[in-house]
């Protein structure tokens, strides 16, 4: 079955002063997904987003909902909300004034202003307070409110949680998940931290040094790379425990009284612990570490 893509790019390239900043990026962001665009600082995330949004020149094809840009750009962009880098706010105006400007530009209903302020929890701010007196987190929330204003079918957010406190990060995550699940908004979100995104994204694209090194569903990221799950173990009789592990055909190493069993499945844990206890050996420490997404991410960007 052919999937519909909210964003589809073909061979996006951008060079600056003879240096390739992004190199043949072909993104496929399925509709109704939350797509995490990951990469270390300077990998080319913001440049890619800027090129997708038509803010940078360069070569390649960009399609939104199957329609090639720049044709029909106005109609397509009316379905997109974006926050690129820092929020674009007029600091000498209030939050409402900032939103009203966008409401007029997008020809939306003015009631939408209060709705988005409520969504990002900024209704408590006095209407006359100028944005220049806002904290970094409040500015970030207002930037997200601007992106949410048109009730977008596609939301493009570049590092949206920068400057938010832990509570703000959780609020934002819940808001984005609910928008995705309840309204069906496709969300394209960039970050340099996998831990920040793994709780909400369904798909992931990893960019490093301008190249897309991985793109798939998040669950498949666990199967990438050389890092495997492992079990660490300390017992009252390590020598005897090693014999038991050998009998169970486990691959293990010993380092300073700690036995590490490599490449192990979770379901094997019971059999190992039962065998050790049956041999009258006390277990002091037993820790199972699953295949780590973070380690796989690091593997992909370091290879």
């Amino acid at each position: 079955m052919q999937r519909n893509f909210a964003i589809e790019t073909e061979n996006l390239c951008y060079s600056f002063k003879g240096q390739k900043i992004i190199d043949n990026i072909s993104l496929k962001v399925p509709e109704n997904s939350i797509y995490g665009f990951l990469g270390p600082n300077g990998a080319g995330k913001t440049t890619t987003i800027k090129q997708i949004m038509g803010l940078l020149p360069g070569s390649g094809i960009v399609k939104f909902f199957g329609e090639t840009i720049p044709y029909n750009k106005i109609e397509v962009h009316s379905r997109i909300g974006s926050l690129i880098e820092t929020p674009s706010l007029y600091e000498h105006l209030s939050a409402e004034d900032n939103l009203n400007i966008s409401v007029k530009l997008r020809r939306l209903n003015r009631s939408r202003v209060q709705e988005v302020l409520q969504l990002v929890k900024l209704t408590h701010v006095h209407s006359y307070k100028k944005v220049k007196h806002f904290s970094l987190g409040m500015k970030q929330r207002l930037g997200i409110a601007l992106a949410l204003l048109p009730n977008p079918k596609l939301l493009i957010l570049d590092e949206p949680v920068n400057g938010l406190d832990p509570e703000g990060i959780i609020d934002m995550r819940e808001l984005l998940i609910s928008l995705n699940r309840e309204v069906g908004t496709t969300i394209f979100i960039s970050s340099h931290l996998l831990a920040e995104l793994e709780k909400m994204v369904s798909h992931v694209g990893i960019i490093n040094q301008g190249k897309l090194v991985y793109q798939d569903e998040l669950k498949n990221l666990r199967h990438v790379g050389e890092v495997q799950s492992k079990l660490t173990l300390q017992t009252s009789n390590n020598a005897h425990a090693e014999l038991i592990l050998a009998e169970l055909n486990q691959n293990y190493t010993v380092d300073e009284n700690v036995i590490t069993v490599h490449t192990i499945e979770k379901k094997q844990l019971g059999a190992i612990s039962r065998a050790i206890i049956a041999a009258d050996i006390d277990i002091y420490h037993l820790m199972f570490k699953e295949k780590d997404l973070e380690e796989n991410f690091m593997y992909l960007i370091n290879r």
């Binding site: 803010l55 109609e75 397509v76 690129i84 007029y90 600091e91 966008s102 601007l146």
Partner: peptide
């Protein structure tokens, strides 16, 4: 300068406005 200071060109140019 109003647009430069608030980095809002990038926002304006991505709106559905010519």
């Amino acid at each position: 300068d109003i647009e430069y200071r608030s980095s809002s060109w990038k926002y304006l140019l991505t709106l559905p406005v010519t």
